[in-house]
């Protein structure tokens, strides 16, 4: 029940566990019930705060459900055209090398319309970070087929299920990014349970740290649920991430130059 008084709790010797980062705005979010964006937002916010980057951060929002990330984070933010977040972020980082710059993009944005911008940004080794939300559909426009839609998955533009022979197979972005020279860190994580969330945060912090250290481009792919467009309950959708997404999109760190000096790119911003 909500009748318990907060002040009273504090007076009675209680301390809050896992307090919300201050950079998160205290307002209701527009995301659908069970959507993982909120979990990811919190992880990004925690990582920024714990790494002491909030005050020098410039966020580049993308087009999709998460365009409104700027409503939920007290960060300087510029809104990029659809797919162009990595190019916009390149401009931001080059103009302000002392800023901490990250983009937050969905799968249609990053892996379809913005594939060229994303991969070239990564390949140049821009000292910035990308948080990539992969929920296998275009969420905001109503659940159309995405470049990451699984084979056989029904969407509003693949009503019979994605057909590999005519529509190709899902792009594995974390692996693709790991293959590019300028990438210092690339990992895929999920947010389906506390254990996964703890791992996800570790990965986000590692990707961010690459930028802070000037080591290169950091990339984290978060497998996420979209219950609305998957036509599932939030719990079913959460389970689908485990049972269907993870087997196709394996979790793990695909590149980490901190553990492999051979991968490192030359440092410095210019």
């Amino acid at each position: 029940m909500t009748s318990i008084n907060l002040a009273a709790l504090q007076q009675e010797g209680y301390t809050e566990v896992a307090t919300l980062p201050e950079v998160l705005a205290d307002r209701p979010m527009h995301y659908c019930p069970g959507c993982h964006h909120g979990i990811a937002h919190r992880l990004v916010a925690e990582a920024l705060e714990e790494l002491g980057q909030v005050e020098r951060t410039i966020c580049v929002s993308s087009i999709g459900c998460s365009v409104f990330i700027y409503n939920y984070m007290h960060l300087d933010t510029v809104e990029a055209p659809h797919g162009r977040a990595a190019a916009v972020a390149t401009g931001v980082k080059r103009a302000r090398p002392d800023a901490f710059v990250f983009t937050y993009q969905g799968d249609g944005d990053l892996a379809s319309i913005g594939l060229a911008e994303s991969m070239h940004c990564a390949n140049r080794g821009e000292k910035l970070s990308i948080v990539f939300i992969n929920n296998t559909v275009y969420g905001m426009t109503g659940g159309q087929m995405a470049p990451t839609t699984l084979p056989g998955q029904k969407t509003t533009t693949s009503p019979g299920g994605r057909c590999a022979s005519t529509e190709g197979l899902p792009l594995k972005m974390a692996e693709i990014m790991a293959g590019l020279g300028g990438v210092a860190y690339s990992a895929r994580v999920a947010t389906t349970s506390l254990k996964r969330i703890v791992e996800a945060k570790k990965a986000i912090k590692a990707a961010f740290q690459c930028q802070i250290d000037g080591r290169g481009f950091g990339f984290v792919e978060l497998l996420s649920a979209c219950p609305t467009n998957w036509r599932m309950t939030p719990l079913q959708a959460n389970e689908r991430v485990e049972k269907e997404l993870i087997p196709y999109f394996p979790l793990g760190v695909f590149k980490d130059d901190a553990n492999d000096p051979a991968c490192s790119v030359s440092g410095g911003d210019s």
Binding site: V78, R84, V88, G91, K93, R94, A95
Partner: peptide, 8 residues
């Protein structure tokens, strides 16, 4: 778009 970012 890089121009957009720098201009921002």
């Amino acid at each position: 778009n890089m121009l957009l970012g720098a201009a921002a």
